[in-house]
Write a protein that binds this DNA or RNA. Structure first.
Length: 474
RNA sequence: GGCGCCUUGGCGGAGUGGUUACGCAGAGGUCUGCAAAACCUCGUACACCGGUUCAAUUCCGGUAGGCGCCUCCA
């Protein structure tokens, strides 16, 4: 498995510390609002990474966090907690807001066929671990307390700017936000924030420094150490996290343990809509549910994500999503006939079977090679189309269906998309197909076309052959 | 202001110093009751200007346009 490592800015082999186990930590969502398509590109790509590691014979141990407290609206450390703000907006408690959007996130995650992480961990369930980590940093002299909280002194961590290749002097000179005057360095960040004097927070805990809540960055360090150890193999997240969140995670973690925090940092690039990145302020972040309401399936969304490389700036539009949906339909159509014996009058041939076995084995090999090479999913998709096309144009016996099953299972594991439908159709749909066949036999074309439209409305396409109709999912 | 990135055919999107992926859409043809199915054929794109080279979309320099980060962000 080769991956582009942000730490070294090169593509390099992944070398797990305790192979075959490979530990992966993914920065998950802040659950104060709905996830949008940009998030889903990110998580589908991370899921693809996990699948690729498995394909390569490794055993990923995957942890994803849910940020349900502490993520401030502004990093000036004077902003409001996003969860508390969301609560005010919706007239709920911060706890209710977090629960609602967490459930919504998990629901969409399943729709997109994203594998279940081994642990999905919430920041609010790990307050003690975060406090303990802050205490450790305190005992080593990395912290200081000011009016509104406990802060990390970034000047004490040598090489703070190295990961993101920041020029701290220039950052300061060009900064557009007002800094907290009490901070020793502009890049210092809060480890623990004190509850405000003027109102009561929904979420707050006692700590050695006073009542309050953890800063945003400390949760990832504390939870990844708890579940995956001091050093993890691969840490992933959005590309935007490089300069602040991940830089701070490294500073905290490595200061506390004295060890390397993550060996490989993998970052997913942003998705663009109309030439701009997706953001709340632009209001261009379409939700998965809204896409589905446009008649596009979650699997088409998934396939669309795979059609671009995770490090490129993908452009997003409903038009390109529809193209992916059509593409998925065509792939399924290419494989559909093997399961419908009534209309495939080809007798079994040992030679043909052997040929198919070899052909599919070869494509499996090629697709795997593409995926484990820094997740070259566009190449994998090219190969899948090529394979489907070859299969569609050379007859095979129904007896060879298990060969296709095997390939379909491989694609399901590797890419998370279904390319075959072995499931029986519902009786009423079968009935419609039969009725249409009858209408065609009677040359009742009007009725035949009407039935075809009806089937299409149920997501079923039909294809007429000399020996009958084959159906496939649209 | 500082740092960095991008520019590929109608759309999306790979890739490469010399045979110009792939998908969707589109065109023509075959077949078909029809085609919205299937099959066959078809696109010489790589911002612009120079340079290096036998050869550049691919390397170097510049120009234009766009974008990202330095604020919250996947």
């Amino acid at each position: 498995m080769k991956l582009y490592n942000t730490l070294t800015r090169t593509v390099e082999p992944v070398k797990p510390l305790r192979a075959p186990q490979v530990t992966v930590y993914t920065c998950g969502p802040t659950v104060y609002d709905y996830a949008h398509i940009g998030h889903w590109f990110n998580y589908v790509r991370m899921d693809t990474l996990i699948r690729a590691l498995k394909l390569d014979g490794l055993e990923p141990k995957w942890v994803m966090n849910i940020t349900d407290v502490g993520h401030l609206v502004s990093d000036a450390d004077e902003g409001e907690d996003k969860l508390e703000k969301g609560a005010r907006r919706e007239g709920k408690t911060a706890w209710e807001v977090a629960e609602f959007y967490t459930q919504d996130f998990l629901k969409d995650m399943h729709l997109l066929n994203i594998l279940e992480p081994d642990h999905i961990v919430k920041a609010t369930d790990h307050i003690a671990e975060q406090i303990a980590l802050i205490q450790k940093l305190e005992s080593k002299g990395y912290t200081y307390v000011i009016d509104d909280g406990v802060y990390y002194d970034t000047s004490k961590f040598e090489g703070y700017a190295a990961f993101a290749r920041l020029d701290l002097d220039d950052l300061q000179a060009g900064a557009r936000v007002a800094f907290n005057e009490q901070k020793r360095n502009s890049s210092d960040f809060a480890l623990w924030k004190f509850s405000p004097k003027d109102h009561k927070r929904d979420m707050e805990w006692d700590s050695p420094w006073g009542k309050g809540f953890p800063g945003w960055h400390i949760e990832c360090s504390a939870m990844s150490m708890k579940y995956l150890g001091d050093t993890i193999d691969i840490h992933t997240g959005g590309i935007d996290h490089i300069p602040v969140h991940h830089t701070n995670e490294i500073a905290q973690s490595e200061a506390a343990t004295g060890k390397r925090f993550a060996n490989v940092w993998m970052h997913s690039n942003h998705v663009m809509v109309n030439g701009e990145k997706i953001s709340k302020s632009l209001g261009n972040g379409i939700r998965l549910q809204e896409i589905v309401e446009q008649g596009i399936s979650p699997e088409a969304v998934r396939l669309h994500v795979l059609e671009s490389h995770y490090r490129s700036h993908a452009k997003f539009s409903l038009e390109s999503l529809r193209a992916s949906q059509a593409s998925l339909k065509n792939i399924r159509n290419d494989f559909s006939w093997i399961y419908q014996p009534a209309v495939v009058p080809v007798s079994k041939s040992e030679e043909r079977s052997r040929e198919l076995v070899e052909q599919f084995a070869s494509y499996k090999q090629l697709i795997k090679a593409a995926i484990i090479n820094d997740l070259a999913t566009p190449e994998a998709m090219r190969l899948l189309h090529e394979c489907a096309g070859r299969f569609a144009t050379t007859p095979a016996s129904m007896d060879d269906a298990p060969i296709v099953d095997d390939f379909a299972a491989f694609i399901q594991d590797a890419l998370g998309i279904h390319i075959t439908d072995r499931d029986e159709l519902k009786d009423e749909l079968k009935q419609l197909i039969a009725e249409r066949e009858q209408a065609r036999a009677n040359k009742d074309w009007a009725k035949s076309d009407e039935l075809r439209d009806k089937l299409a409305a149920d997501g079923i396409g039909v294809r007429d052959t000399p020996s009958g109709a084959i159906w496939y999912r649209l």
